[in-house]
């Protein structure tokens, strides 16, 4: 009898989920050890975090505010992955969406009931325009969207800094480096959590349904998984690539709108809070599943919120970033290990 490892071509969902849970646990333990090594008391800090997050309505509301943009940016990345594209530019599209929604709010007159849908639409179009060039470059010249979407992030970030400190600077002068307070607010849903939260979940559900229950979704699934097979079946790969990438940009743009009109109420530099980049992690945690993105975003929001609490306890901000990195790392390891099983077998006969 000999014990050996065998790699299976696919992992069963139960084992995969267990591997995820263990991976997160390991990441937290490692983070705890690091905190202990730097002189903090990890258990006390953990209790503090749990109490502040789940012990009160306020804590949960904070998480709710964080989860809203994360669902949408995560969904944006997950959607692009469906056609095999890496949208690293959700950050830039988020800014572009926030910029467009703010522009409409500042310069178009109208009642709030009309203005909010209009701003929502402006956000989507802003994100779409921001991914348009990378999309066409990929579709017609095979330029890697990884690079182009990433580079446009810096352009969008600086554009928003510029308008917020320059042409759109609050004329009332109440605050430095932001636009005036927007006249139209996304109404509140529960407590501080605005309607952006249920809308984000709705967008995720509708997108998931579109992929599962339409002919278009099926074609995208095939084309994204194997472009050669799409060619074989006569499916228009390029058209699907363009549509899906534009959709991905639009969703990230939508994320910017409730952030401006619901959470911050102003456009300011740094408004994205890295939500675009964190969306990549959310999508990876969700294994590219549109519904899974909701769970991934929730986890990420709890981590971010914990980070804020830890900061009030005097822990460095980079530590929080390190914890998120550790979770991603351990998850990747866990995903791979979930493919293995231990078998005992007789030694192979000669």
């Amino acid at each position: 009898m000999a014990i050996r490892l065998q790699r299976l071509p696919s992992a069963s969902p139960g084992i995969a989920l267990a591997a995820r849970a263990i991976a997160i646990l390991f990441a937290l333990i490692t983070a705890g050890l690091l905190l202990a090594a730097s002189g903090a008391q990890p258990l006390k800090l953990a209790l503090q975090v749990l109490r502040s997050t789940f012990g009160s309505g306020f804590g949960l509301e904070d998480v709710g505010l964080l989860v809203t943009p994360l669902i949408l940016t995560g969904l944006s990345v997950a959607v692009a992955l469906r056609i095999g594209a890496w949208n690293i530019g959700a950050e830039g599209q988020f800014y572009a969406g926030a910029f467009a929604a703010t522009g409409v709010a500042l310069f178009v007159p109208g009642p709030t009931i009309v203005m909010l849908p209009l701003m929502f639409l402006a956000g989507a179009i802003g994100g779409l325009i921001w991914i348009l060039v990378p999309t066409l470059a990929r579709a017609y010249a095979d330029v890697s969207e990884l690079i182009t979407t990433l580079l446009l992030n810096f352009v969008a970030t600086l554009l928003v800094y510029y308008v917020a400190t320059g042409p759109w600077l609050d004329p009332g002068g109440h605050a430095l480096g932001t636009t005036a307070r927007l006249k139209h607010d996304v109404p509140e849903f529960i407590g501080m959590v605005h309607w952006g939260f249920p809308i984000a979940i709705l967008v995720a559900v509708i997108t998931a349904a579109a992929f599962s229950f339409t002919r278009w979704g099926y074609e995208v699934r095939i084309a994204g998984s194997n472009p050669q097979a799409a060619k074989y079946a006569g499916m228009p790969f390029r058209r699907h690539l363009i549509v899906v990438m534009l959709l991905s940009g639009a969703i990230a743009g939508i994320a910017g709108m409730p952030e401006v009109a619901g959470t911050v109420h102003r456009l300011q530099g740094g408004i994205s809070n890295n939500f675009g980049y964190l969306g990549i992690m959310v999508a990876v945690l969700a294994r590219g599943s549109c519904i899974g993105v909701i769970a991934g975003a929730a986890l990420m929001a709890v981590i971010l919120n914990s980070g804020i609490i830890l900061q009030t306890q005097g822990v460095n901000t980079s530590t929080v970033l390190a914890i998120t990195g550790l979770i991603l790392f351990f998850t990747a390891v866990g995903d791979e290990l979930a493919h293995f099983r231990i078998v005992s077998s007789k030694p192979a006969e000669a």
């Binding site: 099926y218 095939i222 998984s225 194997n226 050669q228 097979a229 074989y232």
Partner: peptide, 15 residues
């Protein structure tokens, strides 16, 4: 080209 290896048997059946 005839199959999308990573997709399910069902997805590949109805191509």
């Amino acid at each position: 080209s005839g199959l999308a290896p990573a997709l399910s048997v069902t997805d590949n059946a109805v191509i």
